[in-house]
């Protein structure tokens, strides 16, 4: 991977929210990761652990409390001129978690998708604009004839696809996908995942793919980072992480995936993770090639040993 171009670097990112009373919420508390151009990094973890907040910092919707985000070699906090800001917006798109709240209800779908095309002057003519919009709708599996409809006329899953079409419209380099498929039925999930993969190949797109559905994340991600309470607890190649999870939280997460098989579900038990103070101390250490686990210095050797043993069996 070393000869590849690092597109995004997140260094020591922190984002705290202050509350009226009783202190602050440490939504993201010192995380580090890189994403290489053309790669998909999956970001998974408990609801409320800071995934969306991380994504929002990357697209500059939030100002980090601390830390740096470097996109394409530039610190995004230092983007000042309007022109650079516009270019950044075009290059880094986000697909939002809540499809309904993120679509303007008073706008027709063609104008929601067309907005970016207009702002960035990506259409040569009115016709070209319409042609692009229709193409995008077809790409995400919606009927191009429905371009003139309003968001409320669509089902939940259909609205999510409008959000995907909107992000694709400006031909970005990096897309932060915040649970883009959870509102879709499995067949359309499969369609969208196949589509995102295909677009990635064709356009060398890079994704940060936030999700909690681990079975789909596995398909799309090259590497996966597991978050818990604002911290990354484990990071590694997808296959490695699925077969040899080391951190207790990762183990519990994988054990909770339900299978489409009632006979198995009846008897299956899941590993429950008991959180202890101090669990989140330490930092990410490499315990196998490309496999990082949150640990304190004196735990590293034991983790290395554990991984070796699990691989033997």
């Amino acid at each position: 991977m070393s000869d590849q171009n690092v597109l995004l670097q997140v260094k020591g990112l922190k984002k705290f929210f202050s509350r009226e009373q009783k202190g602050e919420i440490r939504a993201v508390n010192n995380i580090n990761f890189d994403i290489v151009e053309g790669e998909t990094l999956g970001l998974v973890g408990e609801s409320g652990c800071g995934k969306t907040t991380t994504g929002r910092c990357i697209v500059k919707l939030y100002h980090p409390t601390n830390g740096e985000i470097i996109f394409d070699g530039k610190d995004i906090a230092r983007i000042r001129s309007k022109r650079d800001q516009l270019e950044f917006c075009r290059n880094v798109q986000m697909i939002f978690q809540d499809p309904y709240a993120s679509l303007d209800p008073k706008k027709k779908v063609q104008d929601i998708i067309g907005e970016g095309i207009d702002v960035h002057h990506l259409a040569k003519s009115r016709e070209d604009r319409n042609h692009q919009i229709r193409g995008l709708l077809a790409t995400v599996g919606l009927n191009p004839e429905h371009a003139g409809r309003y968001p409320h006329e669509f089902s939940g899953g259909q609205r999510q696809r409008i959000g995907i079409a909107r992000a694709l419209a400006v031909k970005p380099k990096l897309i932060v996908c915040d649970e883009p498929i959870s509102a879709l039925d499995v067949s359309i999930q499969a369609q969208v995942v196949n589509l995102l993969k295909k677009l990635q190949k064709e356009r060398n797109l890079t994704y940060l793919f936030i999700a909690h559905d681990l079975s789909m994340v596995k398909y799309i991600s090259d590497r996966i980072a597991v978050m818990y309470r604002g911290v990354i607890v484990e990071l590694g190649d997808t296959d490695e992480l699925y077969h040899y999870p080391i951190h207790r939280y990762t183990k519990s997460l994988l054990s909770a995936i339900p299978h489409a098989d009632p006979y198995k579900e009846i008897n299956r038990s899941r590993i429950i993770y008991q959180f202890h103070e101090g669990d989140l101390n330490g930092e990410l250490h490499e315990i196998g090639k490309g496999h990082f686990v949150l640990s304190q210095d004196n735990q590293v050797e034991a983790y290395k040993e554990q991984l070796k043993n699990e691989k033997k069996n």
Partner: peptide, 13 residues
């Protein structure tokens, strides 16, 4: 209606 769609698998469980 999709009550656990937005949840991770442990909280879903």
């Amino acid at each position: 209606d999709e009550p656990t769609t937005a949840l991770d698998v442990t909280i879903q469980a």
